[in-house]
Design a protein around this nucleic acid. Structure first.
Lengths: 147, 147
DNA sequence: AGAGTAAAAGATATTAGGGTCTTAATATAT
DNA sequence: ATATATTAAGACCCTAATATCTTTTACTCT
């Protein structure tokens, strides 16, 4: 059920971080490896990667020795870019109580509290670039896999 | 699509606040009035109110002059109680990247940032009691209706 | 006691998200 | 050029969330 991001978006974030890490040395990563590396259904992540590659958040090449990778310019994308691509602006913009007309001049009862939360969220996602996660992963200080 | 709470939970929060406000003087509020007052589908909110009343977050009585109301003890429930009743603990507990094994000792790359966000969320919901919203609503300083 | 009113309960539809599978397209190596 | 590896694309299915409708139960007033 409910969480900050959709399941699709969760997988997308994990996958991009994973691919960025693995492709750092120039090699490419296959779908099977991604699925295994982040514990996701293979066909489902394939779908998501297609989408991410169309939006140029990751790169891909077909054929033997093909696979997915993250080039150096894409490494400077932030997590916010991924979330925006998959889940849209809602997490940054929408009213916590689902009111379309909620605004500064016509706030819902939680408007101000949620503004803070959203700002913190935005700051977090905006300031974390894809490239930055590699080191902690390599050092085993953080994880993107269940087991 | 994605937001902090499920649609059901959004309606639930708005409805409880609405009923608390309207029933402050002791009168009871019918389903139709609730639906109109918070812009929700009538039959859907009926379902949700049933549930809330079973969980004693609101009270109800049948028959003529019946309806829903919030008694004084229920007024001291917090928004967190409503969210917990409808959406469960996920918003307070779950990992932002959907990892079941995410923890202090095996954190996902966003673990610490999300901990802050969740804490702020919990604090917000925990410290706001149902009864507290009436005044701002009455003064027209906040709104729970679209139009 | 009976009529009428209102919520409770439950059965049924609709939609969107999540997930799977199959076929097509493309690049590479030989 | 052909075979093969690999992603791209799209059709399809399942489940849970969302929403609606109908029937039952309970209460109140006369």
């Amino acid at each position: 059920m409910q969480m900050f991001f959709s399941k699709t978006c969760e997988y997308a974030i994990r996958a991009v971080i994973f691919i960025a890490q693995k492709s750092e040395g120039g090699r490419k990563v296959g779908i099977k490896e991604v699925a295994a590396g982040i514990d996701s259904p293979e066909h489902f992540i394939a779908k998501i990667l297609q989408d991410l590659s169309k939006r140029e958040l990751i790169q891909s090449s077909k054929g033997p020795n093909g696979g997915f990778y993250v080039d150096s310019s894409a490494r400077s994308n932030t997590l916010a870019d991924i979330v925006r691509a998959i889940d849209g602006e809602k997490i940054f913009k929408g009213c916590g109580l689902g009111l379309k007309s909620c605004s500064e001049t016509k706030p819902c009862p939680l408007h101000n509290d949620f503004k803070e939360i959203r700002n913190k969220m935005q700051l977090t996602l905006q300031s974390a670039t894809i490239g930055e996660f590699n080191e902690n992963l390599n050092l085993g200080l953080s994880y993107i896999k269940e087991r």
